[in-house]
Amino acid sequence: MTTVGRNESSPGRAPGDDQLSKSVGISLKPVHFDAILETRPDVGFFEAHPENYMQGGGPMVQGLRDAGDRYPLSLHAVGLSLGSPGPVDSVHLGRLKRLVEDVQPRLVSDHLSWSRTGGVCLPDLLPLPYTQEVLGVVSDNVSRVQDVLGRAILIENPSLYLCPKVSKDEVVAMNETDFLAALTWKTGCGILLDINNVYVSANNTGLDAMAYLAGIEKGSVGEIHLAGHKTESGPAGTILIDDHGGPVADDVWDLYRLALKRLGPVPTLVEWDTDVPSLGTLLAEADKAKALLQQVLLSGSHEHAA
């Protein structure tokens, strides 16, 4: 079994895409298909969930191909269930491979989570205990996906509402950033750092978002995600829900600034998946990210990767 290993990518470089490194992308939404073709907006790349384009034909697939003919694409999977023991669902992986061959995305990613067990596929990104056993499971699955696709992928930190501590006898020894670092080292994958998820998880599980960012290995991040969340306050305290349904929060912009300062320019995506606004509103949100990315490029103030 050949593996896309750490030693095959250049040292200190995430397996991302250099040409995208200064660009900001937005989610590709079917409601914007026509506006994109008519107005040809200045967008660095479009990102889509491949699971929404696997049925073989129709206007959805055409919309993705149309965007792909004009812009770089990123395919951001939600269904590989990399944290399920046993090999990744080969049918689903086969469909992903066909779509990757069809639209030739610059980036391919999925999440540090699980969604499949006992033949049931839950439409959510469920939390994992960060044990050695789980590291083995996720590493094997990431390697398998990379072998089948013939390329390195990026793995995203999930938004957490629970942080599993113990998997029966095995007490969790790693925090999420250590786990991700070990995963990148073992498989050669990169990290998709979702800043909003860091913020949401920090609130919901009692972590320090700044410490989290400081724990992310420089040079391992191939893409950054930004999105909006909603706040629910009740007897259980304040819960942040990662609903991708509004503008990016001020605190998340602040974390993004810090992340860029530490990591240098990284391709950045502004996600908006529920209550999708006009293309113009989404572009305006992307412009804010673009301005911050430009600032970092101009100042050259980011700490250089070792």
């Binding site: 959510d124 469920l126 509402y161 629970l162 942080c163 599993p164 501590k165 113990v166 609130n203 919901n204 599980t205 009692g206 972590l207 259980a236 305290g237 304040t238 819960i239 829900i241």
Partner: peptide
Amino acid sequence: GFAMGGIPVAAGLAVY
């Protein structure tokens, strides 16, 4: 089975 310091376990489960 879950880390303390965040929202209650029942509330987290309810979100999922």
